Each structure stands twice: as C-alpha cells, then as structure tokens.
Simulated assay, not measured.
Amino acid sequence: MSFSTQDNDEVLSEMNVTPLVDVMLVLLVVFIVTTPMLTNAIPINLPKTDAVAPAPQKDPVVVSINGAGQLFINKDPVEPARLAFNLQGAKARDPDIRVQLQADEGVNYGEVARAMASIERAGITKVSVITAR
C-alpha cells in the first residue's frame, strides 16, 4: 500500500455549481407542476345589474384670494377676520362641507396660510388647494 506524501496546499478556486443546478431544477419542476393548478377558474354565474349613476354631490365652497389679497367666498367679498365665522355658519348648515382654496400666483404665502388656518378653525377637514397647470 502506498500513500502519497505530497503537501498540496493549493486552494481550489473553482466554484462547485452542481448543488446550485440541482436546486434550480427542483424549483423548475415545482413551478411546472403548480402553474396549471393556478389557472383553473371556478365557473359561477354572477347576477346582472344595470348601470347606476353616481350619487349627486353638492358644489364645494370656493375660497379665493386675488392678487390684491382680497378674500372671496363663492365670489362674494369677505373680510379676513370674518372668514372663519362665515365658514362656521356654512358648516352648521352642511356638516359634510367641502372647501376649495384658490389663490392668485402673486399672493404672499402668509395670506394663503392665514386662510388655511381660518378654514381649520371653522372645523372643516375636507380642503382642496386648486392650482393652474
């Protein structure tokens, strides 16, 4: 019996891809078997309905600020100090009120922020800020 006494300290730099190929083949078989099962649909007869019109929505209250800084509610001028009071009255008439805020491009942002604060003080939570494209 002969034994080899060579000291072979070389590192094997090749990666063994056989386990990787085995795993990939198993996954491929699993996908091939399960895919036809996923495409089967159960035939059912659903009831037919007529088209229904959407529920009517009330027009929102429009708060506008022009280039001179004047406030308007639905094209009616209003003093900045009275904005929250007028909106509270509108909210009392319609608890589900929606407000759209429009401001001229040249308006100072501070005035827009004050108008938004007044809308918030009135207890209105549905606010849209309208911009031009």
Rank of each mutant, 00 (worst) to 15 (best):
L83Y: 00
L46C: 01
P95F: 04
A117C: 00
Q88F: 04
P60A: 14
E10D: 12
A51Y: 12
T125R: 14
S4D: 09
R114N: 07
I42G: 02
S64F: 06
P54H: 08
M24V: 15
T39S: 13
V99G: 01
S128E: 12
K91D: 01
V26Q: 07
V23S: 12
L46D: 04
D22E: 11
M15K: 10
Q88G: 04
A117N: 11
T39L: 10
I119F: 06
A90S: 07
T18R: 14
P60K: 06
A113C: 04
E105P: 06
N86F: 00
F3E: 10
I97Q: 03
R98S: 13
A103W: 00
A41H: 04
S128P: 04
G110W: 01
P19D: 09
E10L: 13
N108M: 08
T125C: 02
F72Q: 00
V112F: 06
E111W: 13
A68W: 03
V78R: 02
M1F: 06
N66A: 10
P43H: 03
S13L: 15
P80T: 04
A113Y: 09
N45V: 04
F31Q: 11
D94N: 15
K75P: 01
E111H: 13
A53M: 07
T39I: 09
D7G: 10
T18C: 05
P56C: 05
N8R: 14
V107N: 10
V26H: 07
I44C: 03
Q102K: 15
A81M: 04
F85I: 04
P95N: 04
D96A: 14
T34E: 05
L12W: 06
A122T: 02
V17D: 10
V52L: 14
Q100P: 05
Q70A: 12
E10G: 14
M116I: 00
P47H: 08
S128C: 03
V62L: 11
I65C: 09
P56Q: 07
N8V: 14
M1T: 09
V61A: 06
A103M: 02
N108I: 07
S118C: 01
L87P: 02
K58I: 04
Q88D: 02
G67E: 12
F31I: 10
Y109V: 14
P80N: 04
A41F: 03
A41R: 12
M15L: 10
K48S: 12
K126H: 13
S64C: 06
V99Q: 01
I73T: 06
K75D: 12
V112K: 14
L27D: 05
G123W: 06
I44Q: 07
M1V: 02
I32L: 15
L27Q: 08
T35V: 12
A113W: 04
P47K: 10
E10P: 03
L27K: 06
T131Q: 13
I97G: 06
S2K: 08
R82H: 05
R93D: 08
R133C: 05
S13P: 01
F85C: 00
K58M: 11
M15F: 08
G89W: 02
R82K: 13
I130E: 08
A92W: 01
L38R: 09
I119S: 07
G89Q: 12
Q100E: 15
K75N: 15
V107G: 11
N108D: 12
L12C: 10
V78C: 05
